[in-house]
């Protein structure tokens, strides 16, 4: 009993333990300034990893979100420069999201219609979109956005950073989408067992197309929040997005085999990744460690996850044996 509770809440406990250790190690961690900072960073990661959760749930992966974020936000950044009208800003946001959706849709096409492995298709998209972004920006930086646009990434509302509110909204939207809609059900079946989806009249390619399109849109949205916070857009932004998002999802307990997991775990995953990064900063560990740690954490998470799955199967077998024994008695 205890064990199953531990398994269910292991991620939450890990997060809690991490926070306790960090706050013991450095008093700075629990200051409101630092916590606000963590919240701001976690919110961007959470936005990106909610979309990634859906992709991984459907049995795929998306390595292109950083480039999609970069290309879409660079293309529309001029709309947000100081003095832009609200209409212009709204138009820019819609256009940016549109670019992301189109790129995501292309990912979906390559994967579902041509049959490319997801990591190949999205890796290629990563390179293509990054190349276009770099060519378009030609080494320049677009900066100096108006206050209205900056509100998105750097504003405060009732003492809460706006990005946190946005991330919460995105999370709720995806939570709703995954657990309360027909589409969510379809995502889980396609990820769990594509052939079962087919036999149930659910089109696997269509579902994948939708999922990657949505993820492209989410990536673009993450990019907009990011440049709003930074007050600048440059072509190289977001290179670490895919890995961090995949890391957050993996730690959050969504299985790379598809069909198991959800965005609730991803929140904890995103928080763990952010707190870890923050702790390393506070403790004076070089930021250079972040990439290596993220990679190690991904491997560790999938290995542990595998262990948990194996444990679950073992438990099931024991249960069945007990039932048989009972039936025979």
């Amino acid at each position: 009993m205890l064990r199953s509770y531990l398994a269910r809440f292991s991620r939450g406990i890990a997060l809690l333990a991490l926070c306790v250790i960090v706050s013991l190690a450095t008093p700075v961690f629990l200051t409101s300034d630092n916590l606000l900072n963590v919240a701001r960073q976690a919110s961007l990661l959470l936005i990106l990893s909610t979309g990634m959760t859906v992709v991984i749930l459907v049995g795929g992966t998306d390595l292109s979100i950083g480039s999609i974020a970069a290309l879409s936000s660079c293309l529309v950044a001029p709309f947000f420069l100081r003095g832009a009208s609200t209409l212009q800003i709204v138009l820019g946001i819609i256009l940016g999201l549109g670019v992301g959706a189109v790129l995501g849709f292309l990912n979906g096409l390559m994967i579902s219609k041509i049959g490319l492995p997801p990591f190949v298709a999205t890796y290629g998209m990563n390179q293509i979109a990054r190349g276009i972004a770099l060519a378009y920006m030609a080494g320049n930086i677009t900066y100096g956005f108006g206050p209205t646009f900056r509100y998105l990434g750097a504003g405060m509302l009732y003492g809460i950073p706006v990005p946190v509110i946005i991330a919460a909204a995105v999370f709720l939207l995806f939570y709703f989408l995954l657990s309360k809609t027909v589409f969510g059900r379809q995502v889980y079946v396609v990820g769990a067992r594509p052939s079962v989806a087919t036999f149930s009249g659910i089109s696997v390619p269509e579902t994948m197309l939708k999922v990657y399109t949505i993820n492209g849109l989410v990536a673009a949205f993450g990019g907009l929040v990011f440049i709003s916070r930074l007050n600048a857009a440059e072509a190289g932004l977001g290179e670490t997005f895919p890995l961090q998002a995949i890391g957050a999802v993996a730690i959050g307990g969504t299985s790379f085999r598809g069909g198991i997991g959800g965005v609730t775990g991803t929140i904890i995953g995103a928080l763990i990744v952010t707190v870890l990064t923050n702790a390393m900063n506070l403790l004076g560990v070089s930021t250079l460690w972040q990439t290596a740690v993220t990679g190690a954490v991904i491997i560790l998470a999938v290995v542990l996850d595998q262990g948990l799955v194996a444990q679950g199967v073992g438990a099931a077998l024991v249960m069945r044996r007990n039932r048989r024994v009972r039936a025979e008695a």
């Binding site: 059900r185 889980y188 079946v189 769990a192 079962v196 036999f199 149930s200």
Partner: peptide
């Protein structure tokens, strides 16, 4: 096991998979 049911999903989900819409 391969085509009829998604074994990792709950009974209620499997019952409604073919009639969601």
């Amino acid at each position: 096991k391969s085509d009829g049911l998604a074994l990792i999903l709950p009974v209620k989900d499997n019952v409604t998979h073919a009639s969601l819409t």
